[in-house]
Design a protein around this nucleic acid. Structure first.
Lengths: 250, 250
DNA sequence: TAGCTTATGGTTAATTTTACCAAAACACGT
DNA sequence: ACGTGTTTTGGTAAAATTAACCATAAGCTA
């Protein structure tokens, strides 16, 4: 079938079939590409999503995912990091692709295809809460989102689905926790993330048995009950275990 | 920070920050978008990948994933289905996004961002083997791929990684099998897919206990040993189980 | 019919998961 | 200083699942 096509073609440029359709190649270079960031944080036992208020048409005044058009000479993965940097000052945060959205009329300005990226933010390390609540940047509770611009609602839904799957086969939950955390913190996070309840004693045993947690020898202070030990995620141990075929499972 | 930006902007079009950079909006609409299909089949106990020989520069003569540019007025998901249809005659095959590749210089003709899609093909139902081997379409053994054009090697690698993860949490393996299959067929498939060995008796019990297999009451013929029963995938039962919170796990 | 091969039904030991219990450790109020 | 409330922590035993294996069944071939 490919043969037939090629034989009808006088000059084939770039791609296999494009010339066959007698459309000049320039006509294909009319897309714009954007990235939209699903930035999740965890605060006071709730999952939070970073939103900005749009200062421009279309959807002026509506809340939206932080996003931007990619430059014609910019790697899209780097574009995602750039947007995150612009908005939060954060660097060295892994941006992970979720999906790409290419419906024809998703953006009124023209043909804008957008790539979703999510990242998990340790709120303590970055702590955008204080300065951000006042302005037009908002950490919204994931279960109580306002109306969102464009198709951002469904982009967020997809990202959450992907995250919830990934979080139980990879130790990415730690990215949402502060450097030092208790097993209780960790359990609460996973319970919020997966919307379940775990038996406390069993959860603890499971986590400790994986060998991913390093005991800091420090303990909580200022709590009205027996203080818990503080742990850190042992990245080195994790890489070693991966080498030996270990897989995080929850 | 968003405030500062907006205040410097005279006229903001479309996106939040673009006008800030003083670049006319048209400059952003210079991308082309393509789809590349990772079409996997299963034949004679081996995973196969559908490749075409490029009939055009660049990479003329090299093998490549079937792919095409998307039209400026075409939904990218539909573009993927169109390409599959063009190439194989298949309709109603679910095309699933893998990743999106947006390195700046991945395509010599210009800024082409490509979206990967995989689909699993039941070779018996479509049976492209006979007609295809002769032409410039090839089912290549997944473990013995030729040199591929562009960044297609790494696109395939990513797709396989994603598939191997997904195949153990969703019953998509069935899409690679013929309508009726034996438990042995199924086991061989999963062993090829995941590169492991299962205990035969235990594999059988596990599968049957899920209640996803419907016994056709038919048995194999023309085999030099005790013939096995033939099963089909019970899609209805699967949907019902999903409703009750069932999750396929292997 | 003997012999070969794979399917199929079962049993048992090993391992993991689940459900609970009780002591420990801190803060607070009295 | 001492009981009270609360959460951590270490532990045990039952329940459930997984893994390892065996024996028989059922077709084909010679």
């Amino acid at each position: 079938m490919n043969n037939k096509r090629s034989s009808k073609t006088e000059k084939v440029i770039g791609h296999q079939f494009t010339a066959f359709y007698k459309i000049p190649i320039e006509k294909f270079f009319q897309f714009a590409l954007s990235v939209d960031c699903i930035i999740l944080g965890y605060h006071e036992n709730r999952l939070k999503l970073l939103l900005i208020e749009r200062g421009a048409e279309p959807h002026l005044g509506k809340m939206a995912l932080p996003g931007d058009l990619a430059y014609p000479n910019e790697d899209i993965n780097l574009a995602a990091s750039r947007v995150l940097l612009d908005l939060t000052g954060l660097t060295d945060v892994a941006m992970i692709q979720t999906n790409t959205y290419g419906q024809v009329d998703r953006h009124p300005i023209g043909r804008v295809v957008t790539v979703g990226y999510y990242s998990l933010i340790n709120v303590d390390q970055y702590s955008p809460l204080a300065s951000s609540w006042a302005g037009n940047v908002l950490w919204a509770d994931i279960d109580d989102l306002p109306d969102l611009a464009f198709d951002h609602k469904s982009i967020v839904g997809d990202a959450l689905r992907i995250l919830r799957e990934r979080v139980r086969s990879q130790p990415i939950g730690f990215e949402l926790l502060p450097k030092k955390f208790t097993l209780g913190d960790m359990q609460s996070l996973y319970e919020a993330l997966l919307n379940t309840k775990f038996d406390k004693a069993n959860f603890r045993k499971r986590m400790l048995s994986m060998g991913l947690l390093k005991d800091t020898k420090e303990i909580q202070t200022e709590v009205a009950h027996r203080p818990a030990r503080l742990f850190t995620f042992d990245k080195v141990a994790y890489e070693n275990l991966i080498q030996k075929g270990f897989t995080f499972e929850l």
